[in-house]
Write a protein that binds this DNA or RNA. Structure first.
Lengths: 214, 214
DNA sequence: ACAATTAAACCGATCAGTCGGTACTGGAGA
DNA sequence: TCTCCAGTACCGACTGATCGGTTTAATTGT
């Protein structure tokens, strides 16, 4: 159970995160955060020495969650199917399901937000973003490598390139999703990517041939 | 020939655009712009009534250039090959070549920047972003539709979905490219996407079979 | 008792935007 | 050719508001 102080701290971080994703970090004032969190100005500074500390903590928390989700999706994919190529496909599908299941508009990714506000953050914060992306890239690329051993790809591919492609589609879809106000768009992009991966690894469901009507 | 005033105006817009792409709009002060453009504070306000007007003009100029590039790439693709599916592939390749040819780090897309700072801009500005993306989607989706008629896709696809996928990969790659400080990454992502498209439309270069050694 | 919270006053820095004035330039009139 | 003038372009000091951050004294919850 979280103490009262911890709850307030969490409320501050939540409010800050939401505002940063909507307006960006620079346009997020402490008064905005304080008001959204339903606390006073004094309380904000009781919990955080500065605004920068909030940005650091937000990104670190996001990095942590991101890593957990990555690990869990990979683990669940591993539980569901044995073939590493299938695991990749399932993983992308899990992302699709996740975005589709949300009942509010997905607000985008903090890493992207910070990237488009580069120069406002200190070295350590930038490094957190880089490390998080690098982690994702590494674990997914490793899985792609496994998949390549199990199924010779139909086209020449670079494992890191494929990992980046998945990441790119996700990040790009977040932007389109925000503009269109649609989580479904994000999910659909993940689904299409899934089909691409199946093609690359020759995982076409051959049994799905439509029986000719007569 | 541009008048002196027009040149100054352009310098202001260039400086503003660069700063917005690096730090975001909110963190771009008029002093930043003024200093980068090599003019005084007074001159800025001589040319622009407010900071918001600059944001509007920047995005409109970007939208215009974006549209021109889209049209030109599609036109050039049409000049190079007849088959609409091949045209799509060539178009993506043209983007790849473009990003590879840059000698400075590609700073990212203003639409993405604005999307992650939504709420700072007025209705008209937001609409410009939406319209620009919609235009891209429409013309590329139309080409995908043509391609589908010429080549039955190997997988079930939605033309708009495919257009969005290309856009997503580009936008996502911009982010990765910024983080990694690499234009090559962006170009590589476009190349991989090119291969995916070839697969989908069955455009594999069958003649490329590696002759068995011995 | 002690941690958490409040409200308000306050600070210096920086912000967007204003204003009064100056330099440059390209004619028009003599 | 010289003078004068209007418009264009530019300048930098100034204003009021807002920013992040501090301080304090008085509560509240456990």
């Amino acid at each position: 159970m979280a103490t009262r102080g911890e709850q307030t701290r969490a409320r501050i971080l939540d409010a800050a995160r939401a505002s940063v994703l909507e307006r960006g970090f620079a346009a997020t004032s402490i008064d905005d955060i304080q008001e959204a969190a339903g606390i006073s100005r004094g309380t904000f500074f009781y919990h955080f020495p500065s605004k920068d500390d909030v940005s650091r903590e937000i990104i670190e928390r996001h990095a942590e969650v991101d890593r957990e989700v990555t690990d869990e999706f990979l683990r669940r994919a591993g539980d569901l199917v044995d073939d590493p190529a299938q695991q990749l496909v399932v993983m992308v599908g899990l992302y699709a399901d996740y975005f589709r299941s949300l009942d509010t508009q997905y607000p985008g990714c903090l890493f992207a937000s910070y990237t488009y506000e580069a120069g406002l953050f200190d070295e350590a914060t930038e490094q957190t973003v880089k490390d998080s992306i690098a982690y994702w890239r590494d674990v997914v690329a490793a899985k792609v490598r496994e998949a390549m051993e199990a199924h010779t790809p139909v086209i020449e591919i670079d494992p890191v390139g494929v990992a980046d492609q998945i990441y790119s589609v996700m990040q790009g879809a977040f932007i389109l999703g925000k503009v269109d106000g649609s989580n479904e768009l994000i999910a659909e992009q993940m689904n299409l990517l899934k089909e691409h991966l199946k093609l690359v690894f020759g995982l076409r469901t051959a049994a799905k041939e439509v029986p000719a009507a007569t």
